[in-house]
Amino acid sequence: MSSTKFILGLFEDPDEMMDGITALQQNSVPIYDVYTPMPIHGIEAKLGIKDSRLGYAAFMFGCLGGTVIFSIIYFAMVHDWPMNIGGKPAFAVPDFIPITFEWTVLYTALGTTATFFFATHLFPGRTPRVMDYRATNDRFVIAIDVKKNNTPHEDITNLLKEAGAVEVKHNDRKYVSYE
């Protein structure tokens, strides 16, 4: 049994890479992931990637932040230390709105950032998961998981080369490390 874990097709042009994705999909070859040095519009739809749920998390963190600070202000200004300031009532909601808005934005920003780092495993100090270093510079990479694939390696290699791959690599490691 082969030690190859991934077959990587490296392309110089994003249009050729998109043709490679089409060729692989037409031959029922499952694609593990695609790595590009820049955003390519329409690639998510082509790969069948669902929309991110990060917006829902941001909304929930915003609600949490607004509720927390509103509760703190209400407790401090109405129950714990009510003050008569110019004859205004202690529970004057318009006075609470600016700080409630600011805390809502703060909680949303920090919570969404933390959720993004948790979901993508991009914690500070963690070694990045990179299939090929050139994917961060000038190459477009299609990664195909060999273990979840019934197509012979030679057929996949030929499909990638016919689509315009400048290089096809058989990787025996899951990710390249920086050591």
Rank of each mutant, 00 (worst) to 15 (best):
P14D: 07
P14H: 08
P14L: 00
D15M: 07
D15F: 07
D15I: 10
E16D: 09
E16A: 12
E16Y: 02
M17K: 07
M17E: 04
M17I: 00
M17Q: 09
M17D: 02
M17S: 04
M18F: 05
M18R: 14
M18Q: 12
M18S: 11
M18E: 11
M18I: 13
D19M: 11
D19A: 15
D19G: 06
D19N: 13
D19H: 07
D19Q: 14
D19K: 14
G20R: 05
G20D: 01
G20K: 04
G20F: 00
I21S: 10
I21N: 04
I21L: 12
I21D: 08
T22M: 05
T22N: 12
T22I: 12
T22Y: 07
A23M: 13
A23W: 02
A23P: 02
A23I: 11
A23T: 14
A23F: 05
L24I: 06
L24G: 06
L24Y: 05
L24S: 02
L24W: 01
L24C: 12
L24Q: 04
Q25K: 15
Q26W: 01
Q26E: 15
Q26S: 14
Q26C: 08
N27A: 15
N27K: 15
N27S: 13
N27M: 01
S28L: 08
S28N: 15
S28T: 09
S28E: 13
S28I: 04
S28W: 06
S28Q: 14
S28P: 01
S28A: 13
V29F: 00
V29T: 11
P30C: 07
P30Q: 11
I31A: 12
I31H: 09
I31G: 10
I31V: 10
I31N: 10
I31S: 13
I31W: 08
I31C: 11
Y32E: 14
Y32H: 14
Y32L: 04
Y32S: 08
Y32K: 12
Y32W: 10
D33P: 00
D33Y: 00
D33T: 05
D33W: 00
D33K: 05
D33E: 15
D33H: 07
D33A: 07
D33C: 01
V34M: 10
V34A: 09
V34C: 11
V34F: 04
T36Q: 05
T36D: 06
T36P: 11
T36L: 04
T36N: 09
T36V: 13
T36H: 08
P37Q: 03
P37L: 01
P37G: 01
P37Y: 00
P37D: 02
M38P: 00
M38V: 14
M38E: 14
M38D: 06
M38I: 10
M38S: 13
M38Y: 07
M38A: 13
P39W: 04
P39Y: 08
P39M: 03
P39R: 06
P39H: 11
I40S: 06
I40H: 07
I40A: 05
I40K: 09
I40D: 03
I40N: 07
H41Q: 09
H41A: 11
H41V: 13
H41F: 12
H41I: 10
G42M: 08
G42P: 01
I43P: 00
E44H: 12
E44G: 02
E44Y: 05
E44M: 07
E44A: 15
A45N: 10
A45W: 00
A45K: 13
A45R: 09
A45Q: 14
